[in-house]
Amino acid sequence: MKIAQELRPGNVVIIDKAPMVVQKAEYNKSGRNAAVVKFKFRNLLTGTNTEAVHKTDEKFEDIILEAKEVTYSYEAGDMYVFMDEEYNQYELSKDDIEDQLKYLEEQMQFEITFYEGKPISVTPPVKVVREIIYTEPAARGDTSGKVMKFARLPSGYEIQVPAFVEIGDKIEIDTRTDEYVSRMK
């Protein structure tokens, strides 16, 4: 069993007796509201995509699938090609890895997951380091880390960072929640 908050792209869960692969998981939390996760699932039997919103503590029956380490090689049209240690290549579509595009870099390590021998998704390392290519200057004197602002990664994705983070800084990001972890020294 996994709770919704623990589900990541590539995980497969059983919903209404069908195996569903998580393609995208967006975590949202608010004041008094229950934290929720918005999912994009693909039904592995029918190939249809579904959106769903669940509370973070809802329990799901997950299934363990065959997986192996791969490296991202290149983009070929609408497909993204990954390679294992034995130079076997695996292609995944943009839909399959939509949620990973923000971190995707050549030679980046991933774990690829298979369902009935077919690659269905990739999972990035839990933590990645990325450079900030743009952010607004910080207000003077704020070093508390509580005031947040947006900062842009090389992929164009924007992430919330503490106000003291500057252009050119390298930051560590938790890919499970897309949250800033620390500034690298």
Binding site: V13, E51, E58, E61
Partner: peptide, 12 residues
């Protein structure tokens, strides 16, 4: 909330 509102979801 705009994007999470009113999306019927199968309770697992």
């Amino acid at each position: 909330a705009d994007t999470c509102h009113a999306i019927p979801s199968t309770h697992p």
